[in-house]
Simulated scan of single mutants.
Amino acid sequence: NRVLVDRSVEAEFTEKFVAKVRTLKVGDPSDPQTVIGPVINSSQADALAGAVEQAIAEGGTALVHGTTTDNLVSPSVLTGLPADSALLRQEVFGPVVFLVPFDGEEEAVRLVNDTPYGLSGAVHTADIERGVNFAKQIDTGMFHVNDGTVHDEPLVPFGGEKHSGTGRLNGETTVDAFTTTKWISVQHGRSRFPF
């Protein structure tokens, strides 16, 4: 849940991003107005609240400070985390975002890959070719150009790299994951082998 932002657009992006996050409705997923439903259980809700408090204790700034009610966690947007923060190297599954500024593509690649995880990622750019070249440098199982990071389609392999898991599911990869190829031959008649 790191969002890396080029410093040249950091101020404008942050202002617009925070404004949008403040509009996201948290609640019952059966309500069509809800954007953020509950997390899987109270332990995950507590872990997300703990991550926000840890970020603040490390010197981060909460631009949006979410709250937790049961399994409903409203979004938090944080910035200013120190570069050595463990939070920047974790998979945080929930509505907690760490904004991380960078200078240039080389630094962005280094920051993105500086984690033991590698499930999914995305890059947004006006130059599609540059986005694809960037994606090739990232150690993830999935990477998306000009789209969100979460996709799960039945025919497309889903899976990560590093500590985000091994193997892929969906489509033909599912057949491979749950089957073993075995060759059985039957010779009718007598085989003759030269000695």
Rank of each mutant, 00 (worst) to 15 (best):
P29L: 07
S30D: 13
S30M: 14
T34K: 02
T34P: 05
T34A: 08
T34N: 00
P38Y: 06
P38R: 02
I40R: 03
I40W: 02
N41R: 04
S42A: 13
S42T: 15
S42G: 06
A45Y: 02
A45L: 02
A47E: 07
G50P: 05
Q54Y: 05
A55N: 10
I56V: 15
I56M: 01
A57S: 15
A57H: 10
E58Q: 15
G59I: 01
T61A: 03
A62R: 00
L63H: 03
L63F: 03
V64M: 08
H65N: 13
H65I: 07
T68A: 03
T68H: 08
T68P: 09
T69H: 01
T69S: 09
S74C: 03
P75H: 03
V77N: 10
G80N: 13
L81W: 08
A83P: 11
L87Q: 13
L87A: 14
L88W: 10
L88H: 03
E91K: 10
V92Y: 01
F93N: 06
P95H: 03
V97E: 02
V97N: 03
F98V: 08
F98Q: 13
D103H: 03
E105I: 01
E105Y: 01
E106A: 15
E107H: 03
E107L: 07
E107V: 04
E107S: 12
E107T: 06
A108G: 10
V109D: 00
R110N: 05
L111N: 09
V112W: 08
V112Q: 03
D114Q: 06
T115C: 05
Y117K: 00
Y117G: 08
L119Q: 12
H124L: 14
